[in-house]
Design a protein around this nucleic acid. Structure first.
Lengths: 208, 208, 208, 208
DNA sequence: TATGAATGAGGCTTCATTCAT
DNA sequence: GATGAATGAAGCCTCATTCAT
């Protein structure tokens, strides 16, 4: 991901990106399981053989693709998320953003499929686990920030709370996208806020 | 599922079951994506051709297998679940049972993979959706039972609450099994109970 | 083809015939190439295994079927054909009958397919060759009868003439059934009669 | 059918032709029905997978092969056929050429098998029908040429006569190749010429 | 860098046939 | 005589991958 310095490198980056973008599109449409290298190459506008100029094998590609996927998801989230004055507003804003991103371009489906792949693929697994850990840490830090700003104290450690909230969000995405249950997103926001309140030590509770 | 009355029927049932059980084992191990009919047949101790005596095609098998999977999961749950006097005990018992079942024999992994498959396979999708709806209904009825027994009133309709609890459980299973996050199951029980308390109308609250 | 003398033999004949008839129907519809034993058995109302009670193998069946086909074709022709006073009437009547039979129940198609099979199957070939020879002989005798009755003399030996007429008829059937050319049957009658006249020694010609 | 301009195109044409030629050989030997892609590929000296580089499926191949078969047959005929001064010589020459070509390399057998296939395969059928129509037209034009050159007039329209002659030739080929009847080719020539004479309007007859 | 040609391995499915009942 | 279960062999096709250009 260095900056290109000559024409060869420019070209290389162009086609590399074309493959990644094409894969994103095809995988969203047909699922990784049913996506062949031919599919990706054709969509990218290159030949199958060109694929192997960039990636040693399909597994190699998978790793690169996964990395890209994760990075882009985080980038998009962070570039849109703004901490609000009112902590409940922050929570609602964050949840909405998360769900919105997950749904755009079928990313959610792709992620769930990659969770699946992670089961059998060490490299994908470690990448996703890191990704997940990053989110958990980000959320835990957010909770700490909230608590210190609002003079709250969590009854349970913030990392555990973060994990549970992520579970709820993941489960919700699963329902929405795979099981197509029509529970409104607003209920999720409500539930998270109630959960957070329920974890606040009673005596310290003086909401911001 | 009639009882067999002659040797032919005996044999047929035996081999059918052998295929289903073999599939369960192989799919848990390698994932459906990487499971060939050869794998299943060999594991079952039969020839590939024998597979086609029972199933018209791999898709046909998938449908039968999914149905079986769902049915067995429910059967096992219901045959072990006992409503407790104390509603929190009921909730804890149910959650523990659910998680335990999901983990035994890698069922959880299989289910998540089938959610994935459901995305592209109409038949599997409809079966899983029905399965999900059944669980949601079961849970909602349980909540109603709890509320009437304990003189509680839910602030939100019980079906929505049921859906959110299931989201939490699904998300938790995802973490545990796919992302291998080590949050303890007990935190989930805690969270669910707190959530339920948070949804009880304050004035009616006189816990059983 | 003996008369049955006991129940076993009765049953045997019944199912045997059922297989032959079923085969006739299925083969006419899908072609021998695409007809499986399963197809025949199912259409006959028996199991695949029952097929092997009557026929040692598919090849064995093929021989029996071919024999039956030929026999029935001849039987039908001979039971309908009536020698006319006027020899041209005889010829026209015979040709019409032949074409009609060939078309009924797609027999023509079946015959052409069996010519094909004969290429690679010794047994079928010898049966069809015998069948063909019989027709040629029958026709030659007919020509002889005509010539003696009408005081004609064929310029070429009657067997050769018979062969050429059969070639014309076969070729015509090919066109009609496989190439679906719409030449009217009446032209064939015309052509045959003209051919015959052309072969009559001029001096002897005094038509009946 | 452009001339190849680079090595890739050279190679492609080479292998394509190898497949077609191999198919011609194998099909002549074993019949299309019993010819597998493996057979063709092995005979051509390539792998099965290479077959699919050129043909999307066996059906697709069938269409290409049929087209090639027809084209080559016509090309060979036209490149050898020379219109003679004497019309009977033309007829004899044409018939001999036709029979000779049909027999070389077992083409006749292949054609008859493809007539068979045409019954169940729309694409092959339409190609063969076109082929047949072309022959009929060619023959009819030839007849017209003959009549105008020799001041004859056909009693029946030339297209019908052409069809009947083709029927005779087809039927003759059938006999020769499939039923192995030993009638001499010369009888066919004789018969065709007599038929043609029989169709000439008496008054106009002043043979060339 | 990019490509067309080629392939080995493997997957799904069909089918003629056997055998115990 | 008739059947359901089971199979080995074979067929069609896909796909990740390599290689010469």
């Amino acid at each position: 991901m260095e900056l290109p310095v000559n024409k060869h490198q420019m070209k290389r980056m162009q086609s590399y990106d074309a493959f990644i973008q094409a894969a994103l599109q095809v995988i969203a449409e047909k699922g990784y399981m049913h996506t062949s290298i031919e599919d990706i190459a054709t969509t990218a506008g290159y030949s199958k053989a060109a694929f192997y100029v960039h990636f040693k094998s399909k597994d190699d590609f998978l790793a690169a693709f996964t990395q890209n996927l994760i990075q882009e998801f985080i980038d998009r989230f962070l570039s849109s998320f703004i901490l609000q004055e009112d902590w409940t507003a922050s929570v609602r804003h964050g949840i909405r953003l998360f769900i919105e991103l997950a749904e755009r371009d079928q990313w959610c489906l792709i992620f769930f499929e990659f969770y699946q792949i992670a089961l059998r693929d060490e490299e994908v697994r470690s990448k996703l686990q890191l990704h997940y850990a990053n989110w958990a840490r980000f959320l835990a830090e957010l909770l700490d920030k909230i608590s210190s700003r609002n003079g709250l104290r969590w009854q349970t450690d913030s990392h555990t709370i973060a994990s549970l909230i992520m579970a709820l969000l993941d489960g919700y995405n699963l329902q929405r996208n795979i099981l197509s249950a029509p529970v409104d997103a607003q209920h999720i926001e409500e539930a998270v806020i109630r959960l957070l309140r329920a974890w606040v030590l009673p005596e310290a509770s003086k909401e911001g």
